[in-house]
Write a protein that binds this DNA or RNA. Structure first.
Length: 273
DNA sequence: CATCAACCCTGAGAGC
DNA sequence: TGCTCTCAGGGTTGAT
C-alpha cells in the first residue's frame, strides 16, 4: 500500500523522466480519477503546461506546473510510470498525460490504478487539498516534545491517531504497526497516557521505520510496488502467528478502526486504568 | 470530540 | 477446473 516511503519512491523514480517536459494532452480513462476540475477544464488547463518540479507532501505527489499544481494521491493501488514512445495504454491505466521533451521526444505519464481509489487534483490553490494535513514525520517540526504535547491534546487510541492525516501526515497501516512495535506501545493505548519518554521512543520509531522504508524503496505487497523490498524487514505487519523477532512471542492480529493490526502482546503490553 | 461503519473498487486466495 | 465468498485498505462521509 502506498504510504510515505512508497510515495517518496514513486516521486523520486519519475522525477528525472518528467522534469522539463511539457504536457501536450490528457486522456482521462476513468472519469472519477480526476477529483477537480471537470474533465473538460482539466484537459484545457493541463495542456501546454511544463513540469517544473516533483515533490511529495504526505502521501501526495506534487507536480509543480507553470500555472498549477497537479496533486496525485495513489490511495490503495495507484502507481505512476513514464513510458517512452507512442501511447500504449495498459490495463488499469486511468489517466495518461502525453509529454514532449525539449527536442520533441515523445513519452507519457501513466497513472495506473487497479482499484480506482486514486485521485488527481489540478489546482492553483494546493492548500485547499493539502491544508489540513499534519506535519511531515521526517520534518523538523516533528519532535518528541511536539508529539508528546499533541498526544495530550486528545484522548484517542494511538493507532487510529497515527493514521489520522490531520494529526501526522504520511503514516499508513504498515508503518503505524511497525512504529508502535518498535516503540513498545500498544495500538489501543490512549494518546494522553503516553509519557514524554514514550513519546520520544515513538517519534524516533516513526522516523526510523519511514527512513528504512525509503531506503528499501518501499514495501511490495499485494501485487503493486514491484520495486520495493521493505516487506522482507517487517517485524509485525503480516506476521500473524509468527514469533516476535524481539522476544519470540506469537504475533497477534486484530482489528482496530477497520484496519488489520499486528502486535506482540509481550513487547507491547496494554496498560489499562 | 471520539468511535464506528458504510462506501468507493478489484483481484488474489480460500473453500467447495 | 471453476464457481462463490471473503478480504485487503486510504480516505471521506454520516450516524451515534
Amino acid at each position: 500500500m502506498p504510504e510515505l516511503p512508497e510515495v517518496e519512491t514513486v516521486a523520486r523514480t519519475i522525477e528525472p523522466d518528467v522534469i522539463g517536459r511539457t504536457i501536450t494532452a490528457a486522456d482521462i480513462r476513468w472519469a472519477r480519477t480526476v477529483a477537480t476540475p471537470s474533465p473538460k477544464k482539466f484537459k484545457e488547463q493541463v495542456q501546454g503546461q511544463r513540469i517544473l518540479g516533483v515533490s511529495r507532501r504526505a502521501k501526495y505527489i506534487v507536480l509543480q506546473l507553470e500555472n498549477y499544481n497537479l496533486l496525485i494521491h495513489l490511495r490503495m493501488s495507484g502507481d505512476l510510470a513514464v513510458r517512452k514512445g507512442k501511447i500504449q495504454a495498459e490495463k488499469h491505466d486511468r489517466l495518461i498525460l502525453s509529454l514532449r521533451g525539449k527536442r520533441g521526444e515523445e513519452s507519457y505519464l501513466a497513472f495506473n490504478d487497479t482499484r480506482k481509489f486514486g485521485r488527481v487534483w489540478l489546482t492553483d490553490q494546493p492548500e485547499t487539498v493539502l491544508g489540513k494535513l499534519g506535519p511531515e514525520p521526517l520534518g523538523k517540526e516533528f519532535t518528541p516534545q511536539w508529539l508528546h504535547e499533541n498526544l495530550h491534546k486528545r484522548s484517542r487510541q494511538l493507532k487510529p491517531l497515527l493514521l489520522d492525516q490531520t494529526f501526522l501526515a504520511g503514516v499508513g497501516n504498515i508503518y503505524a504497526d511497525e512504529s508502535l512495535h518498535m516503540a513498545k506501545l500498544h495500538p489501543l493505548g490512549l494518546s494522553n497516557a503516553v509519557t514524554l519518554k514514550q513519546a520520544a521512543a515513538l517519534c524516533e520509531a516513526i522516523k526510523s521505520v519511514l527512513k528504512e522504508g525509503i531506503r528499501r524503496n518501499g514495501a511490495s505487497i499485494d501485487w503493486v510496488y514491484r520495486g520495493g523490498e521493505y516487506q522482507n524487514y517487517f517485524r509485525v505487519y503480516d506476521r500473524e502467528g509468527k514469533p516476535c523477532l524481539t522476544c519470540g512471542t506469537e504475533i497477534q492480529k486484530f482489528t482496530v478502526g477497520q484496519r488489520g493490526t499486528h502486535v506482540c502482546p509481550t513487547c507491547q503490553p496494554l496498560e489499562r486504568k
